[in-house]
Every structure is written in structure tokens, then in C-alpha cells.
């Protein structure tokens, strides 16, 4: 059963003076009950906008959607009762304690004071937050705060939990902790819909991933399926700036085992069959012209390679240019 179903969901932002921006260009997808589904893409791809529409925070410009079995346009209140949402910012009141913050949330979901207090303690214990639950949020570390954000999202045991960039800005240890809790929540029966611009996150957590770029889904499938679209292996070679990377690319393209090449910054991504056998040949080709790469890597395809292949840009590059635009 699909817990989220959308048809050509679209959002156009228009400022009076500025140009209109089509942030989401008609996304159609189905999320099944019980899966961890991820939207992967660079900042500005429309991930958060899509999620905010599904969470009833933003009215779609056009298109249809049903969430937890209710219509997004007409039954938002029913949806709100059954979903949890943790935004990137979290939204904790910093001078209140973590417990007070989620206590308010629990009561707003209609629990009585005693019910709420009981449930809050339960969640705090389960997420191992009791050591600092009664300190003001302002004293928390980024990681502690993030887990508390999670707690606020699940206080009413939602069927479906939305996580917007759950581990952005966290140190590796805290990130591992967040992942652990997300997996725990999933095991306890919660369907999870998350956005991320971390490939590792999508790869580690998601059963299925939709790769989003410029407001559109460019690929959808399990991480393994997506990676399989790139048959063979990838050789990534770094070059000194004085080497003319375009020329090298043309040279390598002549080799029959090479299926495709892409340039990202100063490195060349070469998609090949049987990379282990192709690598020595390629090095020899380069050496004949007196070119020596500074780095060479032979790897199985990653989601970044999928993104690169589909959009012609690497995720990290898109990330950097999205920041410049701002």
C-alpha cells in the first residue's frame, strides 16, 4: 500500500518583482508503507519544497497528492494527526528544556497532561536523552539537539515520519547516532521519508531513492538498482592543472572499453567495463603521451556517479554553485 502518492505535484513561487521560480516541476511518486524513502539531490533541487508540501506546510500550485490515505488539499488536519515532521532547523525553543519542548508538542497532539508526561518520559528513555532532558536546549550540542528534534517528531507515534536533512551539519559520531535511531524507528514500524544531500546517507539508510535535480526526479529506485544503471566500474583520475583535461578525455574516449567519460573539476570520470583490466591499458595510453595522472581510483559506482551520469554535474559541484547563487 502506498502511504504517499503524488501526481504531478508542482510548486511555483512568485515574488512580485522577481521572476517566478518553479521549485518543483511536477513530481509523481509512490512511497510504500514500511520503507525508508529518500529524496537525494543538491541544495536548491526542490527536496525541501516537496517535503513541505507533503507535510501540509505549503500549498501545491497544482497536482494531486494523498498522504497516509488522506487528500492533501482537503484533509490536511487528518494528515497532521498522523505524520511527524522534523525540519532542518528543528524549531526547539532554546530557553525551555528539551522535556518542556516536547511536552508542549505532545499536548498539542491532544494528549492529556498525564498521558503526555508519560509518553515524553518514554520517548526520552528510548532515545537515551534523560541525561540532559531537563537542561535548557541552548546548552545542548548539535547532536543532542538533533536527537531531541527526532523525539519531537515521534512523540505522537506517527505512521509516517518526515525528516528534512536529518544529519546535515553534524559530526560523524552524531550522524551515526542519528542513523541508528532512524533505523530503530523504522524497525518499530514507522515509514520514513527523508531528504538528504549526502550520498552516504541515502546509501546507508534508504530502501529507495529518488534523485532530484532542478525540481524534477531524474532517477528512482533502490540504491543498488540505481548504481546498476552504470554497468561496469569507474576510474577517477586527477590531473595537474597544466594538463589539458579535454584532450586527455578525447584520447581516452578512443579506447573501445570506455563507455563514457565525464569531467568534474580537475578530475576525469571514466566509465568502463572490467575496470581492473582496463586500468593498465589506460595508464599506458597516457604514458605514451607523457601524461601522468596525480591520482587514480578504481571504484564501484556510487550514487554520486549516478547523479553525475544523469545530470552531467557532480553532486558536490552542484552544491557549490547552489551556494554561490545565494
Amino acid at each position: 500500500m502506498s502511504i504517499i502518492h503524488t501526481e504531478k505535484l508542482r510548486k511555483v513561487f512568485s515574488n512580485k518583482e522577481e521572476r517566478t521560480v518553479e521549485a518543483v516541476k511536477g513530481i509523481s511518486l509512490d512511497v510504500q508503507q514500511g520503507e525508508i524513502f529518500g529524496l537525494l539531490g543538491p541544495n536548491g533541487a526542490g527536496k525541501t519544497t516537496t517535503m513541505r508540501m507533503l507535510c501540509t506546510l505549503l500549498t501545491p500550485t497544482s497536482g494531486l497528492a494523498s498522504v497516509v490515505g488522506f487528500d492533501l488539499h482537503t484533509q490536511s488536519k487528518e494528515i497532521r494527526k498522523r505524520i511527524g515532521y522534523v525540519s532542518q532547523k528543528g524549531g526547539m525553543e532554546i530557553v525551555a528544556t528539551g522535556r518542556e519542548n516536547i511536552m508542549l508538542q505532545a499536548q498539542l497532539y491532544g494528549m492529556s497532561k498525564t498521558e503526555a508526561a508519560q509518553r515524553v518520559t518514554e520517548v526520552i528513555d528510548r532515545l537515551r536523552l534523560s541525561n540532559f532532558a531537563d537542561r535548557k536546549v541552548i546548552t545542548y550540542s548539535g547532536g543532542q539537539r538533533r536527537i531531541f528534534d527526532l523525539a519531537s517528531g515521534i512523540i505522537h507515534t506517527p505512521e509516517l515520519l518526515f525528516l528534512d536533512e536529518p544529519s546535515t551539519g553534524l559530526d560523524p559520531q552524531s550522524r551515526a547516532r542519528v542513523w541508528e535511531e532512524v533505523v530503530g524507528l523504522h524497525k518499530a514500524g514507522t515509514t520514513i521519508f527523508l531528504t538528504t544531500h549526502y550520498l552516504e546517507e541515502a546509501d546507508a539508510l534508504c530502501h529507495r531513492v529518488a534523485i532530484v535535480d532542478q525540481g524534477d526526479i531524474v532517477a528512482l529506485g533502490s540504491p543498488a538498482e540505481l548504481k546498476r544503471q552504470i554497468a561496469g566500474d569507474i576510474i577517477v583520475m586527477g590531473f595537474d592543472a597544466e594538463n589539458k583535461i579535454e584532450e586527455i578525455r578525447n584520447l581516452i574516449n578512443k579506447y573501445e572499453r570506455v563507455k563514457e567519460t565525464q569531467i568534474a573539476d580537475t578530475s576525469l570520470h571514466v566509465f568502463v567495463d572490467k575496470g581492473d583490466q582496463a586500468l593498465p591499458v589506460i595508464i599506458q595510453l597516457l604514458n605514451q603521451r607523457g601524461i601522468t595522472p596525480t591520482t587514480i581510483q578504481l571504484s564501484r559506482p556510487s550514487l554520486d556517479d549516478v547523479f553525475l551520469k544523469l545530470t552531467g554535474r557532480s553532486l558536490r559541484e552542484s552544491e557549490a554553485s547552489a551556494k554561490k547563487d545565494r
Binding site: 506546510l57 505524520i83 515532521y85 525540519s87 532542518q88 532547523k89 524549531g91 526547539m92
Partner: peptide, 14 residues
């Protein structure tokens, strides 16, 4: 709005 607090309340049925 900036801290996301309002948004956190807005997804509840309040």
C-alpha cells in the same frame, strides 16, 4: 519563524 518553532507547531493539528 527563523528558528523553525512556528513550523514545528504548524505540523501539529493545533
Amino acid at each position: 519563524v527563523e528558528s523553525g518553532f512556528l513550523e514545528r507547531l504548524r505540523v501539529t493539528p493545533v
